[in-house]
Nucleic acid binder design. Structure first.
Length: 528
RNA sequence: GCCGCGGUAGUAUAGCCCGGUCAAGUAUGCGGGCCUUUCGAGCCCGUGACCCGGGUUCAAAUCCCGGCCGCGGCACCA
């Protein structure tokens, strides 16, 4: 084929294999692209990912992160990372979470152009609050909540006395709030909205409340502040100040968009474009932060990155390639409906990414001894780590002359019949003589693959006795973790921690721990 | 209950804005075959969906109305 000229090759390709071309063309066209952003202009798009650092992120959080990042890149714009940590009381930030989240994002291939932490921007929020009051867009409410609710729910919010205060009075009370004249729960700053808005929660929502940081200190700023902006205030202000043009967020924020737009109106700002998408669920995985926290407290889990968790760290530890996560999220896209991804689907995508680069190793579970007599000569078998990708290298295994001992998997041993021929993959063929539960006896038959084919012999994997490493495998099954023990070939002791490998005929695994001295390996099952 | 959003095969998604080319595309799953020194990969064939009911129209997955179902919100959380 390569002796033909390029022209001849082309012609041949077109005549006889045009479908290959069409397929290739098709694939290019179908390479998943995100739909264009409304009002998206090249070089001018600014997006952000704004996690609460109260825990690590999971697959659901990764969606806005990846989509926002992807859009910023697509339009050659800016991507901002912003930590929203303005509730030291009920959603207390976790000091480690800031860096854990960044680690997860980097692993996902996300790079941010700017980084902000809201708890470090408090003076900015205070300043905007003052300007908002000066514009008559907010008032201090120092009455008990019940009273506010009564007015609100009776549709008489216009008559609510604090709402009717003068700007001067509000400025004074605001200063008092900042000076610490009020305790927790004694005063809030409310944004004036449509007092008759159909959604009561929109009516005069809270922009700032008082949190006793003496009792619940903030991990970054301790008790320096007691007047804290709510999510809606801080996020809205920052989106404007940082020049965010497009907000991509889950639909639980829909009402927040409505609330925040009142603030924008008061300030004369233009609200960014917003895209709301549905929730993303990974079937069979625990996703909710609170549920995860609870499980962790109960023990019995390997940590925040337990492979049974839908956290990014958990998926990483399980052997999922970041590219697989990216593809799945891009495939799910920006639809408003909830999506439920099956692990089979994620696994299929992952397999296609990992398969070309995963080294193959032989590991047998429930090992059964196989004794082969009559090996005609000693041989040093050189076996590549990957059937197609030779750049992954090879290892050699010695087979002695005469009697050779191996281990094969219990499952394969159980399927053997006396008198049958079986091929030890990449080695030779044997004829089975005796099968007992713990031991199989066989006699050398032939070296060649052809003979095995002719005899329709099954091809099984094996491990040479005396040259093994102990393999412990964790196999996540829902919330259970099955533990399997096996024997692996010696070369496995050289695997790198974190490497994703294939155990021949047993599926893909991530190497979780290696102890070369002890000859022990721990691996986590990713998928078949 | 109130406010809002949405419903395409088992799952996910394309198409819906700008009705016909859609007896609906793709991926994954599932069934079968080929290939292969793996039960992996690759290749081929098959399977299977427009929530329901009305309306508009020559023509509706696409537009309109109603119903049903799902989801989100209704915090001094994010």
């Amino acid at each position: 084929m390569n002796r033909l000229t390029l022209e001849e090759q082309k012609r041949l390709l077109e005549e006889r294999y045009s479908w290959v071309l069409e397929k290739a063309k098709k694939r290019q066209v179908e390479e998943k692209r995100l739909p264009p952003l409304p009002g998206g202009e090249e070089g001018k798009v600014v997006t952000r990912f704004a996690p609460n650092p109260d825990f690590v992120i999971h697959l659901g959080n990764a969606r806005p992160a990846i989509l926002s990042h992807e859009y910023a890149r697509m339009y050659k714009g800016r991507f901002i990372l912003r930590f929203e940590d303005t509730d030291p009381r009920t959603k207390r930030p976790l000091a480690e979470a800031y860096s854990l989240i960044k680690e997860d994002l980097r692993w996902l291939g996300i790079r941010w152009d700017e980084e902000y932490i809201q708890s470090l921007r408090m003076p900015i929020y205070y300043d905007i609050a003052r300007r908002l009051i000066e514009r008559g867009g907010a008032y201090v409410d120092d009455r008990p909540v019940e009273e506010f609710r009564r007015y609100r729910d009776e549709g008489r919010l216009e008559e609510y006395p604090p709402r009717r205060r003068s700007i001067e009075e509000n400025l004074e009370l605001w200063d008092k709030m900042l000076e610490g004249h009020f305790g927790e729960g004694e005063a809030v700053l409310r944004v004036k909205t449509d007092p008759r808005h159909p959604d009561p929660s929109v009516r005069d929502w809270v922009a700032f409340r008082i949190i006793d940081t003496g009792r619940s200190p903030h991990p970054l700023v301790g008790d320096r502040y007691t007047v804290w902006p709510t999510y809606n205030f801080a996020a809205a202000v920052d989106d404007h100040l940082l020049g965010v043009t497009h907000i991509l967020r889950a639909k639980e924020h829909m009402q927040n968009t409505v609330k925040q737009s009142f603030l924008y109106k008061h300030m004369g700002w233009k609200y960014p474009h917003v895209i709301h998408f549905g929730r993303l669920k990974l079937e069979g995985f625990v996703m909710s932060k609170s549920a995860l926290k609870k499980l962790l407290e109960e023990g019995i889990f390997l940590g925040i990155d337990d492979p049974r968790f839908g956290t990014i760290a958990g998926l990483r530890r399980r052997g999922i390639d970041p590219e697989a996560i990216r593809r799945v999220i891009l495939d799910v896209g920006v639809k408003g409906t909830d999506a439920s991804i099956s692990y089979a689907n994620l696994a299929a995508v992952n397999r296609s990414i990992v398969d070309p680069k995963a080294r193959r190793f032989m590991v047998v579970f429930e090992p059964v001894e196989l004794v082969v007599r009559g090996v005609p000569e000693a041989r040093r078998l050189t076996i590549p780590f990957h059937p197609e990708n030779r750049s992954l290298g090879e290892r050699s295994i010695e087979v002695p002359k005469g009697e050779a001992r191996f281990y094969i998997s219990g499952r394969d041993a159980a399927a053997l019949r006396e008198g049958g021929i079986v091929r030890l993959v990449e080695a030779f063929n044997v004829k089975v003589e005796r099968v007992s539960p713990r031991r199989v006896e066989a006699v050398f038959h032939s070296w060649g693959l052809e003979e095995a084919r002719k005899a329709k012999a099954p091809i099984i994997h094996w491990v040479p006795a005396g040259q093994v490493v102990e393999v412990t495998v964790y196999k996540p099954e829902g919330l259970k973790l099955r533990i399997l023990h096996g024997l692996g070939e010696r070369a496995l002791a050289d695997a790198r921690r974190g490497e994703i490998v294939q155990f021949l005929r047993e599926g893909f695994y991530r190497i979780d721990a290696v102890s070369r001295e002890q000859g022990e390996v721990v691996a986590i099952h990713a998928h078949d």
